[in-house]
Amino acid sequence: MPPQQDKRRLSSRAVKIGMVSALSLTVAACGSKTTTAWCVDRYAPAVGRTAGGYKVVSDVFCDSRDIERGTVSYGRYFWYYGGKRDSDGYVSGGSRFGPSKGKIKSSSGRTLSRGGFGGSGRSGS
């Protein structure tokens, strides 16, 4: 009789644990919320507007380090998180304080903070 080869097999328990871990990481990564950060002008005239809000301007006016440091700028231009932009270019319904979790992208689509694993995504508190 030929000698039987020793076949190593992982126990089904080890395979299940590995699969569950991989699946949970995938769900966590895919399920993280993305918040839009709008660079806005605190003093833009809202003449004739009945709704409030801040005028959205180019991202170059805002400092992305404010997001990295978790600070809020009190200058003319600052990041405004979430909310909706209307047809006049004003955004409202959001917050001056960033989310504690998730990815932050500028209105132009640039990733400002990845959040989740390895980064807090926190801005302001």
Rank of each mutant, 00 (worst) to 15 (best):
D59C: 12
G31F: 09
S12F: 15
F97C: 01
D66K: 07
C39Q: 05
Y80M: 03
S106A: 10
R76S: 07
S87T: 13
D88N: 13
S113M: 09
T34A: 09
T26A: 15
E68V: 10
R85W: 03
L112I: 13
A28Q: 07
P45L: 06
R114L: 05
G93H: 13
L10E: 05
S64W: 02
K105F: 01
G53V: 10
S24I: 15
K33Q: 15
G52N: 14
G115I: 02
V56F: 00
Y43A: 07
G52K: 14
W38A: 01
G89L: 06
G82M: 10
V56I: 12
C39L: 11
S87F: 11
G48L: 11
F61Y: 14
D63F: 03
P99C: 09
A44I: 12
V60G: 13
R69P: 00
S106N: 05
M19D: 02
G98I: 01
S95V: 05
S107Q: 15
A44E: 09
T36F: 00
R114V: 05
T35E: 08
S12H: 14
W38Q: 01
W38G: 01
R49W: 13
R76C: 11
V15E: 06
A29L: 12
R49C: 12
R13I: 10
G18A: 09
G98Q: 01
G93V: 12
R9A: 07
G89T: 07
S107I: 10
